[in-house]
Design a protein around this nucleic acid. Structure first.
Lengths: 205, 205
DNA sequence: TGTACATCAGTGAACGCGCGTTCACTGATGTAC
DNA sequence: TGTACATCAGTGAACGCGCGTTCACTGATGTAC
């Protein structure tokens, strides 16, 4: 708790972002309104305009912070898995799901809010950094595949990203599709089979 | 064009669904409004209530029709690929992406509108049928794997569904993430590698 | 240390808007005789 | 074939609501002297 009550809020900008994240998580990107975020932060709707150009800008900033956290987390997981390229790669997969689970508001703002990643240069940069961490992990691991059978690292990482995102969207949210398996298991086994397909894990492992 | 103009519309129910699909496609699930769907169909908003309980019901019906079409399409692709289990399986993968591409309104209503699949028994049944087609294809193909290494068919199909859905969401929509590869290629190569991981395709194929 | 003043974060009232939904109604259609 | 009537799909006006945004303002804060 920073200093709060009083005419001046102290740190309204961040408080608004956090209110937005909470509301997005609770009601989906549709349900989020600028007015309610302001009310949650204990402030008049008009006050929001001291810090953001409008509703969309607020979402974009939430998404940007999400990508920054996401990239940091993936980078950390990747580093921790070193020097084993395989361990590092699998750690990023687990980190992906963990991030989506722990920060649903951010995840939704990033991927489900319908916001363009090119809305601001800062947002685009954060998203690009996140992508590059995954691509780096894929590229490292690719080294072990004979060049002539090696898929481009960007394709490799796109496969993994798509699988991870699909698991999150279909099985880690309460859409009524009861997951037949825990999402974590689903992702881990899926990645395992995929890596075996690339010859990166022995067939009988 | 069925008989239209006049006090009675003729087939307002379906016209409303089609208007809804078009609007959902254009503006996302957020942008869709009952009033605008009514206007698009050339009718007063109040008229909608002769056919639907409300806004959500209209979306649910659009989603239901989507799942029916989807299940039919997958079944058709699967049958066409027979008697080769592998060909049948790969055909359903391609059919998945083709459906998402050709019927974005349906796809969004089905997977992105935030509607619960258990909202009505009809919707749940349609969704279950779609799932069962994919699971059947996976089960057939699994027969070729030695039982002790065979993953449950429901897991197998969940992997494929998640990968397909992820490719659609991340790379087949204009979110600003320019796809590094055509989504079709991405999905086909991804499924190929996965199947190789299961030992269903020879390593050098 | 105390006072005057500039800054600017947040107020509160107001706006126009389109939303989903309701209601008593109207008039086109189809059927019974 | 023509008339009376029941049905019910669609009308149009109205509602209360919360939205995003604007505006002139106010009063807390921090700085210069």
């Amino acid at each position: 708790m920073a200093k709060k009550r009083g005419y001046h809020h102290g740190n309204l900008r961040q408080a608004l972002i956090e209110a937005a994240l909470q509301l997005i998580e609770e009601k989906g990107p549709t349900g989020f309104t600028l007015s309610e975020a302001a009310k949650t932060a204990g402030v008049t709707p008009a006050a929001v305009y001291r810090h953001f150009a409008g509703r969309e800008d607020l979402i974009a900033e939430a998404a940007r912070q999400g990508f920054e956290m996401f990239a940091d987390l993936m980078q950390f997981a990747y580093d921790k898995g070193q020097p084993s390229a395989l361990a590092a790669f699998e750690a990023t997969g687990r980190a992906y799901l963990a991030f989506a689970r722990k920060n649903p508001g951010h995840y939704i703002a990033m991927f489900e809010s319908g916001i363009s990643l090119n809305r601001t240069p800062e947002l685009a940069a954060a998203a690009a950094r996140a992508r590059s961490v995954l691509e780096q992990a894929a590229a490292d691991l690719s080294q072990r595949i004979p060049p002539e059978k090696r898929p481009p690292a960007s394709m490799f990482s796109a496969h993994i990203w798509a699988l991870s995102h699909g698991v999150v969207e279909l099985y880690a949210r309460n859409t009524g599709t009861a997951s037949p398996f825990p999402p974590e298991d689903l992702l881990e086994t899926g990645i395992g089979i995929y890596l075996r397909g690339l010859g990166l894990i022995a067939p009988d492992e």
